[in-house]
Design a protein around this nucleic acid. Structure first.
Lengths: 206, 206
DNA sequence: TTTTGACTTTTAAATTAAAAAAGTCAAATA
DNA sequence: TATTTGACTTTTTTAATTTAAAAGTCAAAA
């Protein structure tokens, strides 16, 4: 049976992550990862049938960590604004840390492999669920008005994500100071938005 | 003296606009425009020294129209939310109408010529000014709390623009229904945001 | 079970050639 | 003099070709 496999797999994902975070998925080759580990390229194929599955594994690890941190962050916060700001803070850390993951080699934007896309979608769904939960809780506590919490959360998430993507599209390589600015803006938006929810419900008519 | 020049120039910009709006700047050639007008390509060079200047002229016309419509729209509206929603509505119309203008021919994203970039920047500045004006007015009427109106307007504009850009990046060709969705979301964001401003001022500390 | 060398296939990058578009200029027209 | 055009050169795009590198396979060895 595969006895050493689990620990070896981990070593591989760690080595891969190191390269991925610095050069991105596309600018990292299988042979480079193998060389880093002092093994042959073919050995990697024993653990991961292809590059996509290695990428998917690494991506899944990151997503899991992110979700975990978001969950723990939220429990330490009392009110809605702090909870939402906390989510942004956690995301911001990950955004900066793993910014290069999407760096593409070819001139035309190669789309991410389906495996990664699926994880990203799942992540967005989970994040949305967490936000809805926070909104529902706040509504129950009369912290905000009742309304369509799903629609509200989706709107806020879309605006925040769009701002982040706008940043991505104007920066090939991350810059700490401007990321900090983005971070502040997102929190500012959250503050005003949450205040808006205190006195205004999201219409389900109109 | 150039007697016919002004009217001829207009004919050219009109013909150019027709092609540009359908195929985009880059997929429209000088000779095509000339053929549409039944003149030789070289005649175009008599009126416009190069392609960039023709593009710049057309872009300037559109921007001027947009700004004009925004200004007139705003005067018909009474409260802040309606004013801001009005801006979005006007922009949405133009967004849809001139969506193809940014359609690029080459695989690598050719940046817009500087002339166009400048106009776009000017537009953003003017729009921001208009929004600041609306916010100041609302603050004076005690419709919203006092605060850093410039910062507030910039934040809202950034969020709205980012949502629009996110749409752009996921659609090569515009789709009326999804644009309508975007439009609704933007207005929803404005509603909550404005409500937030009624009870919350934008901090200039922190 | 795990690792590897030798191999094939696929994909990306670099080079080149051909085509099309952009831009110039001097002569013609009116 | 204002406008138009034919003939030309330069620049840019596209398509085709080659070359190199990375991805992936397989059977044999440790």
């Amino acid at each position: 049976m595969k006895t050493e496999t689990p620990v070896k797999e981990e070593l591989i994902t760690e080595a891969a992550l190191r390269r991925f975070t610095h050069f991105g998925f596309n600018k990292t080759t299988f042979s480079e990862i193998a060389k880093d580990l002092g093994i042959s390229q073919q050995s990697l194929y024993y653990y991961f049938p292809d590059k996509k599955s290695l990428i998917a594994k690494v991506a899944a690890n990151i997503m899991t960590d992110l979700l975990e941190e978001i969950k723990t962050s939220i429990t330490t916060k009392q009110n809605l604004e702090d909870k939402l700001s906390g989510i942004v803070e956690v995301k911001q850390t990950f955004f900066e840390k793993y910014f290069m993951l999407a760096t593409d080699r070819p001139l035309d934007k190669t789309p991410e492999p389906d495996e990664v896309k699926n994880f990203v979608e799942q992540m967005e769904t989970r994040q949305l669920e967490i936000m809805v939960e926070a909104l529902d809780e706040a509504a129950a506590k009369k912290e905000i008005c009742h309304g369509d919490t799903f629609k509200t959360a989706r709107l806020l998430l879309k605006a925040l994500t769009a701002m982040q993507e706008a940043y991505r599209n104007s920066h090939i390589i991350p810059d700490h100071n401007t990321i900090l600015e983005l971070f502040k803006e997102q929190k500012e938006l959250i503050r005003i938005f949450v205040f808006g929810l205190k006195y205004q419900t999201v219409s389900n008519h109109q």
